[in-house]
């Protein structure tokens, strides 16, 4: 009777030691560098760096999400991003906490003759996409603009517009039924 108890205890102890060693090796061997979830979250975020989530940029928000913050604070990403985040984090999707922006991608445009050269928008731009110097006209590098809206507010003369990105042959979305059927003026056709 006693021996069987001893055997059981011994077996369990040995098993515990063996598994402990295995686990220890596994923890060492398959150690995860950093916190990959943050990178995954960040990869999903739109990188507009707009700060509308309340964090100074997308990376901090990604860290916050990884630490349990809500996934619905990214208006530029829209519902699609929120759903992906919810899926990644294994939480229920929630509606965006701000009014969802229209899906149209926009870029900032400075009405250049109205610009007074105050540089305030330059300081506000999170991606350094505005070019200019004090008392000189500024302009937006359209290809680098993320459409984050942050430059509109600081402008003292309100000369920044957010314009939707123009559709060209390259970014056309092939939605045929969206093509307006326009009548070409006969004069042009007859020439």
């Amino acid at each position: 009777m006693m021996t069987s108890i001893f055997i059981a205890v011994a077996v369990l102890t040995i098993a515990a030691i063996v598994f402990g060693i295995i686990l220890g090796f596994a923890a060492d061997k398959f150690k995860v560098e950093g916190n990959p979830i943050i990178d995954q979250v960040e990869a999903l975020l739109p990188q507009t760096q707009c700060g509308q989530c309340g964090y100074p940029g997308c990376r901090p928000y990604a860290e916050a999400i990884a630490n349990g913050d809500k996934v619905n604070k990214c208006p530029p990403g829209g519902t699609a991003t929120m759903e992906k985040l919810a899926e990644l984090m294994g939480v229920e999707p929630e509606p965006l906490n701000q009014e969802a922006q229209e899906a149209v991608k926009k870029v900032a445009y400075i009405r250049e003759d109205e610009c007074i050269g105050c540089t305030k928008c330059i300081q506000a731009c999170p991606v350094d996409a505005i070019l200019g110097a004090g008392k000189l006209m500024h302009t937006v590098i359209a290809k680098d603009c993320t459409g984050c809206d942050l430059c509109v507010e600081p402008c003292p003369v309100d000369c920044i517009d957010m314009l939707p990105v123009e559709t060209t042959l390259k970014n056309w979305d092939w939605k045929l039924n969206a093509i307006p059927v326009t009548l070409v003026s006969e004069s042009l056709e007859d020439r």
């Binding site: 045929l176 039924n177 093509i179 059927v181 326009t182 009548l183 070409v184």
Partner: peptide, 8 residues
Amino acid sequence: MAFKIASS
């Protein structure tokens, strides 16, 4: 005149 559009 405008012609009809359809997908190929």
